[in-house]
């Protein structure tokens, strides 16, 4: 029972991570960036290359991964987000960017799953009567910490408030001297830094394989929908809930019911709380 909870929370932290990235770039640029999960995947491969292939230290790998993915994120913003206006086209172009990234990664790294060792111990231990590995605990602690940090920054600092303001109304923000373009860039850089830097923790959990992206992208979206667009705490909790639902479905119903259970969660969320648990209802404008 507790083991299932630990398993659910640790895999849920991955979905939280993707959902936090979605929220970040959504607030920054106003668009939904399907390629967010691919950033995480590139971070995972960067961790494999850094730790395993080049034998670098963990710190160097974190810095390198964060840098590489941040550059990639800016590129995606320039090519797939900035020139596109309608929301539907945005979905097409960011799905395109994600597909392109996944395809390139697959070409370079092959389609075999690559194991990445955790920098700490790999030995499972018992906590509150449940078994888990150190990497699970780190994920469960670090990802929510990121969510909380972003919530605090966005609510308590002038910089964060200006970011929220420009996400609500870009034209009005311009009149107050806020440059929305800068926030769009900034949000992608930050999302890239987080996704890339987290590679060393995500990789030991998932190992590196090329089709990781689409599953993460979709489950991350469920987390986002559950928590509400643009809410960091919502994204964090949404991811953890998703992970728990998945773990319990696998435990009690069988492995084949994992995705189905999350799908049901998604449908239920959309029907009952269309704006998410923490989302605010926006009045319809004519």
């Amino acid at each position: 029972m507790v083991t299932t909870i630990w398993a659910g929370l640790s895999v849920g932290a991955l979905y939280s991570l993707v959902a936090i990235g979605y929220s970040l770039t959504y607030l920054g640029s106003g668009g939904f960036n399907f390629a967010q999960a691919s950033f995480v995947v590139v971070g995972v491969y960067a961790a494999y290359l850094g730790l395993h292939h080049y034998g670098q230290s963990t710190l160097a790998t974190v810095v390198g991964g964060a840098g590489v993915v941040a550059v990639l994120a800016v590129l995606v913003e320039r090519v797939a987000i900035a020139p596109v206006r309608s929301h539907e086209s945005l979905l097409v172009t960011t799905v395109g960017a994600a597909t392109l990234i996944d395809g390139v990664v697959e070409r370079i790294a092959g389609d075999q799953a690559l194991q990445v060792p955790f920098f700490g111990s790999d030995k499972a231990f018992t906590l509150f009567d449940g078994r888990l590995r150190p990497v699970d605990l780190v994920l469960i602690l670090v990802v929510p910490a990121i969510g909380i940090a972003l919530t605090v920054v966005s609510r308590r600092t002038l910089f964060g408030l200006a970011g929220l303001a420009q996400s609500a109304d870009r034209d009005a923000a311009r009149l107050y001297g806020i440059n929305p373009r800068r926030y769009a860039y900034g949000s992608f850089i930050l999302a890239g830094l987080i996704a890339g830097g987290m590679g060393v923790i995500v990789a030991p959990k998932t190992s590196a394989y090329s089709t990781l992206g689409s599953a993460l992208a979709l489950k991350g979206f469920v987390a986002l929908a559950f928590g509400g667009f643009g809410s960091f705490s919502g994204a964090t909790i949404g991811g953890l809930v998703c992970g728990l639902v998945e773990a319990f479905a696998a435990h009690y119903l069988g492995v084949n019911y994992q995705v189905l259970a999350i799908f049901v969660l998604l449908l239920a969320t959309l029907l009952v709380f269309p704006t998410g648990i923490f989302g605010r209802r926006r009045a319809r404008a004519i």
């Binding site: 939904f32 929301h87 539907e88 979905l91 689409s214 599953a215 979709l218 979206f221 469920v222 929908a225 084949n256 019911y257 994992q258 995705v259 189905l260 799908f263 998604l266 449908l267 959309l270 029907l271 269309p274």
Partner: peptide, 27 residues
């Protein structure tokens, strides 16, 4: 359910149905 919200939600729900196919086939 998807069309009630349209936009991204419908798109993602429909993507999800694709992800579900192997599991449904197994079930």
């Amino acid at each position: 359910p998807g069309l009630r919200l349209a936009g991204w939600s419908l798109a993602m729900v429909s993507f999800f149905t694709v992800l579900l196919i192997p599991d449904m086939v197994a079930i």
